[in-house]
Design a protein around this nucleic acid. Structure first.
Lengths: 218, 218
DNA sequence: TTTAATAGTGTAGAAAATACACATTATATT
DNA sequence: AATATAATGTGTATTTTCTACACTATTAAA
């Protein structure tokens, strides 16, 4: 009993104050030359998450990235050559980790490129819907998960954290209230270190205290 | 390119103050005679949701029930005869609608039976995990969706609503605070009707004002 | 030394969450 | 008719959280 199916990856990062998603230019029919989410068939005997990691590695050069399943898409008409079921995953990466690494090495996709989620081209298949549902899912879980910190360097400023909240929620937050609330949650560790390389007052750095986060959310 | 996959249904109802899930006794190998979630192969050319509706109809006699996709499960070892991908759905039904209807008419399942989610038998495949993730998903969404009302008759008492909250969240709530909060949300319509057939003071009936609910949540 | 750019901070008022106990009402029982 | 039973329905005081709002501090570059 054969079962062909694919995984598609919504690989997100945070850069220049914006959420960005990694798109690849398809080198295969159907939708040849269209922009699409990185994705491909899951090998026989390969675990789904391993396939996602493989594809994410091929397009970002990174191993061990944060993954969460979004949903399965199996519309009879989603693929012009017959129903192909796909399972979409959200993957989060730090921009500093990938910035110079993207050079896809596969035959089925040409260049990969970060696109601001505000400004996406038309995508192949139902991939626009998949991206949009991914963002909905992040919004839903923003206060109940530490996934945000997968988008930030280990040491980050409160402004960076606030920008991620704002870009995921799609609204702007009051700086004082945001800081009061987030520090009150009690899972950020204030460091005695400061930003470097900026031409203005350097901001204090913080990091996530994972143990405290666990305690608070379980 | 063929693609065989199944859907499994976590069909939930609310009765006697408890959440219950519908299980069927399998009549096919593997796991013959085990209790399992109702589920079966999706036909070629059949939309996933239609397959879910078909299976739910076969086990409950109901059409047009509330559905939400939970997730895809595709572990290489989840099925002893080779990987079978399944997409799990949550379905919610009113007990009054199904109470006398359950008589499965398929060859692949024998009796169907409501089990309290507190007290499930060992299940076939990874179905225990699927049930448990379903409950997690309901918990997550309880305050942001009107799915609860799919478990209640059109006209219900506040005590019934509170019991559903309590059984999904797994904790008990203060009656006065619960009522204050839920009525404050502004989407319940107080009726001039009361419970009948009880041997004590009859409670007032309410119903969901769907338009107001929409307004409030969009 | 001045300018530019962002960091960092507090308070008062409003709203929401919590803790908590008893009188009311309808039916069934004697 | 009186009583018992079982669940309904209600208010207040306290604590906590949310919201609105503006200026000084710091650093580097010009």
């Amino acid at each position: 009993m054969l079962s062909f199916f694919t995984v598609d990856c919504v690989i997100l990062t945070f850069h220049e104050g914006e959420l960005k998603v990694l798109l690849t230019e398809r080198n295969e029919y159907p939708y040849k030359d269209w922009w699409a989410l990185p994705g491909y068939f899951v090998d026989k005997g390969e675990e789904m998450e391993d396939a996602v990691k493989r594809i994410a590695y091929e397009s970002t050069g990174l191993k061990d990235i944060y993954l969460a399943q979004l949903a399965a898409f199996a519309g009879v008409k989603r693929h012009p050559e017959g129903r192909i079921l796909t399972v979409a995953y959200i993957a989060l990466v730090r921009y500093e980790d990938v910035k110079n690494k993207i050079k896809p090495v596969t035959t089925y996709m040409r260049q990969a490129k970060w696109y601001s989620i505000q400004n996406l081209p038309e995508l192949a298949f139902d991939h626009s819907e998949i991206v949009s549902l991914s963002l909905d899912k992040l919004k839903q879980n923003i206060n109940y998960s530490s996934f945000l910190f997968e988008l930030l360097p280990e040491k980050f400023t409160l402004t960076q954290l606030q920008q991620i909240y704002e870009s995921i929620l799609g609204l702007s937050l009051d700086k004082r209230n945001f800081r009061k609330k987030i520090l009150n949650l009690g899972y950020l560790k204030e460091l005695d270190e400061f930003q470097t390389g900026v031409s203005y007052r350097a901001a204090r750095l913080y990091k996530l205290d994972k143990k405290k986060f666990q305690k608070i959310f379980n």
